[in-house]
């Protein structure tokens, strides 16, 4: 009511709000929303090429989903999770350690600016070229094998690209290197957001570093921690560039490094739109559920903070 009275005396600017939103929503509808709906629609049709003959499109209901679960989907889902875990475990461990060290008032580390710059560097590197670089460096007669042999660590070259865990390990290592700097900075921001008085009070009370860590740091950064975990998992499900270029799109050896998006890419390339659609819908649902979890933990976290503020 009060707003209405105000508007009588003033020029209404409401229409400008809509005008400023037009470009965003028009482009979004054409290039994201319609494609999303079209993807869902496609998932219900049998539509692919078999040699030179075009099969479909014929409406098949949910048959594509049944077929894709019976195909290699579970295997590729497993691969993707394994590759993600291989990178994420060192990533979260190192990041948490660095974030605590960087923010520790007693430790007073020097040159933190330099270290932060260096550890974030791999994140801005083109993933495709990073994978190409690793492929060249870790090839059978590449520099790394050279070095390891001349140092006497290896007798014969280790064939990274022919070994399941060699290839997976390299992908994990690259993902770790590309993301641990980013995670460190996020966790640091979260720790610095904690009221400094809490740490000081704990120190005066004689708490040890480890106690401060488990009793204060961990509980206060829990929402950010879950945020990092799940956004990283969502990012992991989208893993493509590194394994695609490293294994030349084949997921060698024996498709043990083929990820879900590489699978999608293959279906898009061979124009099997029914399967590509079904796979996209599954990915949409999985990321949707994960995002909802992030959303609820973050809003839950805010409420928690608010309550703490009220108590003061």
């Amino acid at each position: 009511m009060a707003g209405k009275e105000k508007n009588k005396n003033k020029v209404s600017y409401a229409k400008w709000g809509y005008i400023f939103l037009v470009p965003f929503f028009v482009i979004y509808i054409i290039f994201s929303l319609i494609p999303l709906i079209s993807t869902f629609y496609n998932s219900l049709f049998e539509n692919y090429r078999s040699g030179l003959t075009q099969i479909g499109p014929t409406f098949v209901g949910l048959q594509n989903f049944v077929t894709i679960f019976q195909s290699d989907l579970p295997k590729y889902f497993g691969n993707t999770l394994i590759l993600w875990v291989l990178g994420f475990i060192p990533q979260i461990t190192i990041s948490l350690l660095l974030a605590i060290w960087f923010t520790d008032l007693k430790l007073r580390l020097k040159a933190t600016g330099f270290f932060k710059t260096v550890i974030y560097l791999p994140n801005v590197i083109m993933a495709a070229s990073f994978a190409m670089l690793f492929f060249a460096l870790f090839s059978d007669e590449g520099p790394i094998n050279d070095l390891l042999i001349s140092m006497g660590i290896l007798g014969v070259p280790f064939r990274f690209m022919s070994s399941v865990w060699g290839t997976r390990g390299l992908i994990g290592l690259m993902n770790f290197m590309m993301w641990f700097g980013n995670t460190t900075i996020m966790l640091m921001a979260a720790i610095m957001g904690v009221d400094k008085a809490l740490f000081e009070a704990a120190e005066i009370d004689g708490a040890k570093s480890f106690q401060i860590f488990t009793k204060i740091t961990i509980p206060t950064i829990k929402p950010i921690f879950i945020y990092v975990l799940i956004t990283s998992l969502v990012g992991g499900l989208q893993m493509f560039d590194v394994p695609q270029v490293l294994t030349n799109g084949k997921g060698t050896p024996d498709r043990t490094s083929t990820t879900l998006i590489m699978f999608l890419n293959n279906h898009l390339y061979s124009k099997n739109y029914g399967m590509a659609g079904a796979l996209s819908v599954i990915l949409f649902i999985v990321t949707g559920i994960l995002s909802l979890i992030v959303f609820s933990t973050l809003t839950g976290g805010f409420q928690h903070k608010k309550k703490a503020g009220e108590k003061k």
């Binding site: 709906i37 496609n42 739109y273």
Partner: peptide
Amino acid sequence: KKAAYMFILMVMMIPTQVTTLGFIQV
């Protein structure tokens, strides 16, 4: 205003790969 804001936040997490098939067709 609120609806538009919520909408943009909701679509933030949709990976672009998910809409690629439809995007190529469009």
